[in-house]
Simulated scan of single mutants.
Amino acid sequence: MTSVLDLAGIFVFALSGALQGVRKRFDVVGMVVLAFFTAVGGGVMRDLFIGVQPAAFRDAEYLLVPVAATVIAFFWHPQVERAMPGVLVFDAAGLGLFCAVGTTKALDYGLAPLHAVFLGVCSAVGGGVIRDVLSGERPTLLYDRQLYAVPAMLGSTAMAVLYTLGVRGFVATLSSAVLAFAFRLLAMRYGWRAPLARGISGSM
């Protein structure tokens, strides 16, 4: 069965995808598609790398939760946007949850901590990349001056360290997720940026 934290990550990523669909003036079908692939894209990538059947193709929750998120965005998107300062907050929450859950799953399947961190980052950013491509946006991952993959890497590393030290379960997962989430929000709030190549201007 899908864990509560996994479902929470699916929901917030799906909601970010559905809200992106609203902003792009997609119809309800487009919103569902965007919500679904945003929610499960990273997890599917992780499971394929591990060599197991993707959970998104096995458990009904992986379809029902994105549909529920789409319904919420379809009818109440103005209220959702006002309640939370933009789609990026939902995205940051999903980023934190998925990097922690993805790293844990990779470690549970016997991967080395370094490889588990890589798959944790893939779990966190994969859905966002698919969302951006489908909605015609430049993938945030490829412009990490906004510090998108870096918080995921931080959370995944924290999860791997805690797991190696024997600290596992809900507390370790939630702590790692909150660390990545907080770092992402701070980066957005204060405009933290990763450096460009020497001599390259940051202006577009």
Rank of each mutant, 00 (worst) to 15 (best):
R131H: 08
Q146D: 07
A124R: 01
L64Q: 00
G17H: 08
A60P: 08
Q20M: 15
V32H: 11
L142C: 04
F98I: 12
V133I: 15
G41P: 03
F37A: 04
A112K: 03
S135W: 01
L107R: 11
P113E: 10
F98Q: 09
L34K: 06
L97R: 11
V101W: 00
F74R: 14
P85W: 07
D27W: 10
D27I: 06
G102F: 01
M153F: 12
Y109T: 02
V28T: 13
R82H: 12
T104H: 11
A116Q: 12
A73F: 08
G86H: 11
G102S: 02
F90K: 05
A68G: 10
P54C: 09
L141D: 13
D108W: 00
F118E: 04
F37W: 12
V121L: 12
G17W: 07
F75L: 09
P78V: 09
G120H: 11
T140C: 03
V33E: 00
L95S: 09
G21W: 05
G42R: 08
V117G: 00
L147P: 00
A158K: 01
R23I: 01
G51Q: 08
L142A: 06
Q53K: 12
H115Q: 14
A152Y: 08
D108I: 01
R23N: 13
L19V: 03
P54N: 12
A158L: 15
R138Y: 08
A92D: 07
A68T: 11
I50E: 07
A83C: 10
A149I: 08
T157N: 09
T140P: 00
D144N: 15
A39E: 04
G120V: 06
T70E: 03
M31W: 01
